[in-house]
């Protein structure tokens, strides 16, 4: 039944035994106990499961654990500095009230960091379009958009 997979997660080398059908998100949540990555749907629509794989935001519900063999994975748990200082994008979400229940938040932040790296000066409309794959039912997006614009600026300024 089992296959062995190895990858780097938040800077640490990990290996784990999984079933072939095991999703990457299941490995992350159940085996590695990194429960900050969430599952909000079964059709790859909500983005709550977004992580960074080799520096790019991906939906960890839409791939098998085996497909991440050898990859460099970062989850929301690996985003803040080791001393606990928030990443500028996380700080921007806090300062702009970009989260309410917090369930969509890890996925939003992971997607936002990737987006901001590629689009440091995005317009409001571009940010809204970039959020097409991340659903939030609480905030109405108003403050998420504000957060991402502020977080992008802070990242570009190297804060």
């Amino acid at each position: 039944m089992g296959v062995k997979v190895s990858m780097t997660v938040n800077g640490k080398q990990v290996s784990s035994e999984v079933e072939e059908r095991t999703l990457l998100v299941t490995l992350i949540r159940e085996q590695l106990r990194l429960t900050g990555t969430h599952v909000g749907c079964d059709t790859a629509q909500c983005g709550a499961c977004t992580i960074a794989m080799n520096g790019k935001a991906v939906k960890s519900c839409s791939m098998l654990a085996m497909q991440a063999e050898g990859a460099d994975i970062m989850t929301i748990e690996g985003v803040a500095k080791p001393d606990g200082t928030l990443h500028p994008m996380q700080a921007a979400f806090k300062e702009n009230h970009g989260l309410q229940c917090g369930f969509c938040t890890p996925g939003m932040v992971m997607n936002a960091i990737d987006f901001a790296k590629r689009h440091p000066n995005a317009s409001e409309q571009e940010v809204r379009e970039a959020l097409d794959g991340n659903l939030c039912r609480c905030t109405g997006y108003h403050n998420i958009v504000k957060s991402i614009m502020a977080g992008s600026k802070a990242m570009a300024a190297g804060k």
């Binding site: 949540r29 990194l34 429960t35 900050g36 990555t37 969430h38 599952v39 989850t75 929301i76 748990e77 985003v79 803040a80 606990g84 928030l86 996380q90 979400f93 806090k94 300062e95 009230h97 989260l99 917090g102 369930f103 938040t105 890890p106 932040v109």
Partner: peptide, 19 residues
């Protein structure tokens, strides 16, 4: 006042039922 609960949600430390 900025929210007291945000730090845990922003760092993946929230505890939802499935967690």
């Amino acid at each position: 006042v900025l929210r007291k609960e945000d730090y845990r949600f922003l760092t993946g430390a929230g505890q939802y039922t499935d967690d």
